[in-house]
């Protein structure tokens, strides 16, 4: 288990250092995620221990947001004054993002899918024409 944890911390640290040194607009953990992804591609396998640790953390990831969420209590005054706007902004923003993401993804998948099948048909047509010359030999 400890090897898996050390791997995660190591990549996070590398990500933090890279993000700071290169003044990247992205946070250290996200850089660490990208670095680990590249490393897994190089190794071509996850490895049992790292896999188990990651599955364990990710299965309980929701718990990690609780401490920041409780921070809402420090803004009770602000929430009392503007909660309808905040609630509307959060709900409307979330609906807009959910629906736009899902339907734009679907539209682009359909579009690229059509292109792929059109290409496929093109290739099929070519291979058909290749087979044609062989037909006379079959007949003879």
């Amino acid at each position: 288990m400890i090897k898996g944890i050390a791997t995660l911390l190591g990549f996070q640290l590398a990500g933090e250092i890279a993000a700071r040194l290169a003044h990247l607009p992205v946070s250290g953990p996200i850089c660490g995620m990208a670095a680990l992804l590249v490393w897994l591609h190089v190794k071509r396998e996850v490895g049992g221990e790292l896999g188990r640790v990651c599955d364990g953390i990710l299965a309980n990831m929701a718990l990690l947001f609780v401490p920041v969420g409780v921070g809402a209590m420090s803004y009770s005054g602000l929430f009392a004054a503007t909660w309808p706007v905040i609630a509307l902004a959060i709900l409307a923003g979330a609906c807009a993002t959910l629906l736009t993401t899902a339907f734009v993804t679907r539209a682009l998948s359909d579009w690229t899918g059509r292109h792929a099948t059109a290409e496929g048909r093109g290739k099929a047509a070519v291979s058909d024409s290749y087979q044609e010359p062989s037909t006379p030999t079959n007949l003879s």
Binding site: I5, L8, L9, F11, Q12, G15, S27, G28, P29, I30, G32, M33, A34, L36, L37, L40, H41, V46, L50, G51, V53, C54, D55, I57, L58, M61, L63, L64, F65, V66, P67, V68, V70, G71, M73, S74
Partner: peptide
Amino acid sequence: YQHYFANVQLIHFLLGPATVALAVPLFR
């Protein structure tokens, strides 16, 4: 809240490694 948050830093800290861990399902 400040007192509470300082004492649950350990949970908050794990957000970093958890973000890195997302590389695993992504790789799979």
